[in-house]
Design a binder for these strands. Structure first.
Lengths: 154, 154
DNA sequence: ATAAAAAAAGAGATTCTTGTCTTAAACTCG
DNA sequence: CGAGTTTAAGACAAGAATCTCTTTTTTTAT
């Protein structure tokens, strides 16, 4: 569904939303380590996101990437548009050129509600709101967060 | 989610299940035209499926591809295994190496039920049963089937 | 000013997917 | 048997996705 590039980008945005601020910019190196992604490749993606005003950056010592308050009003959906485009979401699961409620492919009515849910998760919430939800429901976005079954009795 | 190759393969299998028999073998050329797929590429895929005993074939005049009764006892899932492998179904939607019910990514609980449904649609039915369902519920597998809104008042 | 740090940019390399082309093998029918 | 038809197989080609490397530009701190 999503390319690796887009997955990296989404995780970066969420990582920056949670961990960065105007006073705490984060370099590619750190981000790539935290998310366990190839560093130079991630750099390219962050450049792309910066061009599209989805993340902010400054060069030089103490520079790095961060999200300002304007960036935080965007949605994950904007990241997907920037990196992958939306075609993968529009296309039929079995590749039929014309597949809709009236002429459904064999899995259309399984795929369609799923797409709606994913779409509203990505499109109808700002990054800010998304992060609140992530925190409230204790979601994971990098591997370092894993509790590794430490609290077995919770 | 699925590669083009796999989509073509699934649609071919369903096409053969509906239209072919031991007495009515169908050549690559026809199948490729019906499904609107690149012909030599589809030939490769059908060879692969034949090697894996998911479709049957005979060479020479009046030869072609078809499903015998044994082929019809397989599942779509076997086609996916043959062409794509199952990794795309196992992997996290956001690419996290470790994402499960206990350490869920932000969309885990949206994706997970969808995967279960798609999986049971593909894995828990034989091709034969699948085709019955397709026919009963009037599903589309090639472009030629489209009713193009002729029966607006139904 | 100068040096160091960091992103920006662009070229290039690798791998995977997709697709094509050619030749061989097998089968059928006259 | 022999010609034609069709799959089988393998090499090859084009494109996209992924990933790397090098150079440039900007900024900060000394």
């Amino acid at each position: 569904m999503l390319s690796n590039a887009c997955k990296y980008a989404i995780r970066s945005i969420l990582y920056l939303a949670i961990n960065s601020s105007e006073d705490n910019k984060i370099g590619v190196k750190i981000i790539a380590e935290e998310l366990e992604t190839p560093q130079p490749f991630l750099a390219k993606l962050l450049q792309q996101l910066t061009r599209d005003k989805l993340v902010s950056s400054t060069k030089g010592p103490n520079g790095g990437f961060y999200l300002d308050s304007k960036n935080r009003k965007n949605a994950i959906w904007d990241v997907i548009i920037s990196i992958d485009g939306t075609s993968k979401f529009d296309n039929c699961f079995l590749g039929l050129a014309k597949c809709d409620d009236r002429n459904p492919c064999p899995v259309h009515f399984i795929v369609s509600p799923f797409k709606d849910k994913i779409l509203s998760s990505f499109r109808d919430k700002t990054i800010d709101e998304y992060v609140v939800e992530i925190k409230n429901t204790n979601r994971v976005i990098s591997l370092k967060d894993l509790d590794l079954f430490e609290n077995e009795d919770s």
